[in-house]
């Protein structure tokens, strides 16, 4: 089977078959990262540009490592060191990069839809590494891969997603993905952080965190974006954490074998208490990071012509 897509712009565009193809391919790539020589020659001679207009450690490093483990040449451009500071527009930057003939451009941008705009203008493959509050498909794929590994399957699970849903591209991509794969999703967060009419995505919405977590197989905590406090979306961190911090007490409401996920970076003591984040029986936060490299290898491989 081959991925009949030029770009990966969001989970919304992917079919269940395509998600399964990506996850199965990623499974095969996991082992490469455990070798002494962590490199295969598959994408030798291919060029991958990581074009990051927003800060990132995990995602950018993960894409860079993924490209390098497949022997692609990876080039990182961050907005602060690019001609963006000289006033070049996104489209001009992209056209110039296109002229250098890369094979894949991985882009992160604060504007929702920026990757789709580029994809429509240039002939190379575009991977969305996060656009505004819209989508973060590789994160949702690595989350689904982690869930699948820990729980055997995604269909039939109850997944609770807690926190600032409105500003979270991770939440949006995961809602698309998890509901497509047959899981039921329960959200909880302050009313100011809950998008209007989000129920239309086929999920349940709760005001109290405890209701969403109750009987869940997976609890996914979102990072509280500290920069949002200036916008008066929540009164204080202390008050937020009193209601929406995952701790020993409220995790007991979830299933006994429930796993705890977080896309990182975590604010210890704000949305998740340190003992839960570090609990080896529950927390799969570092598993998620580990799977991230394999998922991104799979995306690069499938977009550059590989199949399964």
């Amino acid at each position: 089977m081959k991925l009949e897509k030029k770009d990966i712009l969001g989970i919304q565009d992917l079919s269940v078959g395509e998600i399964n193809l990506i996850l199965a391919t990623a499974e095969s790539f996991l082992e490469i990262s455990t070798r002494e020589i962590k490199k295969v020659p598959t994408l030798r001679g291919k060029t991958v540009i990581n074009l990051f207009f927003e800060a990132s450690t995990r995602t950018r490093t993960s894409f860079e490592i993924a490209g390098k483990r497949l022997s692609a040449d990876t080039i990182n451009i961050s907005a602060s060191t690019s001609s963006v500071v000289k006033g070049e527009t996104l489209i001009d930057t992209a056209r110039n990069l296109e002229a250098m003939n890369p094979d894949v451009i991985v882009i992160r941008h604060s504007a929702a839809g920026a990757p789709r705009l580029l994809a429509s203008l240039i002939r190379q493959s575009i991977i969305n590494a996060g656009d505004g509050a819209h989508e973060h498909p590789s994160q949702a794929l690595l989350d689904m891969m982690t869930i699948k590994e820990k729980k055997g399957a995604i269909a039939g699970l109850k997944v609770a997603i807690i926190g600032d849903i409105a500003h979270s591209r991770v939440a949006r991509s995961n809602i698309y993905g998890l509901t497509k794969m047959g899981a039921s999703v329960a959200l909880a967060g302050p009313a100011t952080m809950m998008p209007r009419d989000i129920e239309q995505m086929g999920i349940t919405v709760h005001n109290k965190m405890e209701e969403a977590i109750s009987n869940a197989d997976v609890v996914m905590m979102l990072r509280i974006q500290l920069e949002r406090q200036k916008q008066n979306i929540f009164p204080s961190l202390r008050e937020y954490s009193q209601h929406y911090c995952l701790n020993r007490r409220n995790i007991a409401l979830a299933k006994k074998d429930a796993i705890v996920m977080h896309p990182g970076p975590i604010n210890r003591g704000v949305e998740i208490s340190p003992d839960i984040a570090d609990d080896p029986d529950r927390s799969v936060i570092l598993d998620q990071v580990n799977k991230g490299v394999a998922v991104r290898m799979a995306l690069l491989y499938l977009l550059t012509g590989g199949s399964q």
Partner: peptide
């Protein structure tokens, strides 16, 4: 990898 149409499953 990028030329063949008949490809194998990367196991």
């Amino acid at each position: 990898i990028s030329t063949s149409y008949k490809k194998q499953h990367p196991g």
